[in-house]
C-alpha cells in the first residue's frame, strides 16, 4: 500500500536517518521525500513529506518506531491511484531507453505507469506505444503527464495527450 506521511523532524543535521531506518527495517520502499526547510514550525521543527510503499499491517509498528526515534507523525494518508490517463508515443521508443522514461514517472511517488502496449512494425521504422498512467489525484496526473511529455520531447518522440488534459474545462471531464 502506498502511504504518504507528514512528519516533523528536529532542525539538526542527520535526522532523516530516523525516518528511513524504521521504514526500511519493515520492508518499506521510500519513493519521495520533501523537506520544507522554509516552513519551520513554532516548535522549531522542520515539516517533512514522505511517500513510500509498505505492507498495510506494518503501519502501526512503523508509527511506533518513528516516534521512538523522536519523529513526530502529524498525519498518515493512504494513497490510492485514482486518476487515469492514456498517452500515445510515436518514434524511436526503444532506442531512446523506454525503461528510463517509465522509471521517471514511477519515481514521482504519486504516479505510475500501469500499462504499456507497444507496436514495432519495422526495425528502422518508428514504433508506437500507448502508456497508461495512474496518479493519486487530478493535479498529480497533470504533473506526471507534463513530465512524460517533457522526457519524450527531449527524446524526439511525438507525444499525443488526451484532449482534456489541460483543456477547456481544466481536465475535470475525462482524463482517461
Amino acid at each position: 500500500m502506498r502511504i504518504s506521511m507528514d512528519l516533523e523532524l528536529k532542525d539538526t543535521p542527520g535526522q532523516l536517518i530516523h525516518v528511513l531506518t524504521p521504514v526500511s527495517a519493515l520492508g518499506g520502499n521510500v519513493l519521495s521525500i520533501v523537506h520544507h526547510h522554509d516552513k519551520k514550525t513554532f516548535r522549531n521543527t522542520v515539516p517533512v513529506y514522505v511517500i513510500f510503499d509498505i505492507e498495510e499491517h506494518k503501519l502501526e509498528e512503523l508509527q511506533e518506531g518513528l516516534e521512538k526515534n523522536g519523529v513526530t507523525v502529524v498525519r498518515i494518508g493512504k494513497m490510492r491511484l485514482r486518476e487515469r490517463a492514456h498517452i500515445l508515443l510515436i518514434g524511436h521508443i526503444i532506442h531512446t531507453d523506454l525503461r528510463q522514461t517509465i522509471d521517471t514517472i514511477d519515481s514521482t511517488g504519486f504516479a505510475e505507469v500501469q500499462d504499456l502496449s507497444l507496436s514495432m512494425p519495422a526495425i528502422d521504422g518508428p514504433s508506437s506505444a500507448i502508456v497508461t498512467i495512474m496518479a493519486t489525484g487530478n493535479e498529480e496526473l497533470k504533473t506526471s503527464i507534463a513530465l512524460l511529455k517533457e522526457i519524450a520531447e527531449r527524446k524526439d518522440l511525438l507525444v499525443i495527450v488526451p484532449i482534456d488534459e489541460g483543456g477547456l474545462s481544466g481536465g475535470q471531464n475525462n482524463a482517461g
Binding site: H86, I90, S119, P121, S127, S128, A129, I160, I163
Partner: peptide, 23 residues
C-alpha cells in the same frame, strides 16, 4: 505527418480517436 496507423489502433483499443486539435 508522424502519426502511424499502429498508434491509431492502439488508441482505438482503449476507446480513443486521434484528431488534430487547434486550441
Amino acid at each position: 505527418e508522424q502519426i502511424t496507423q499502429d498508434a491509431l489502433q492502439l488508441a482505438r483499443q482503449r476507446g480513443f480517436m486521434v484528431k488534430l486539435i487547434g486550441d
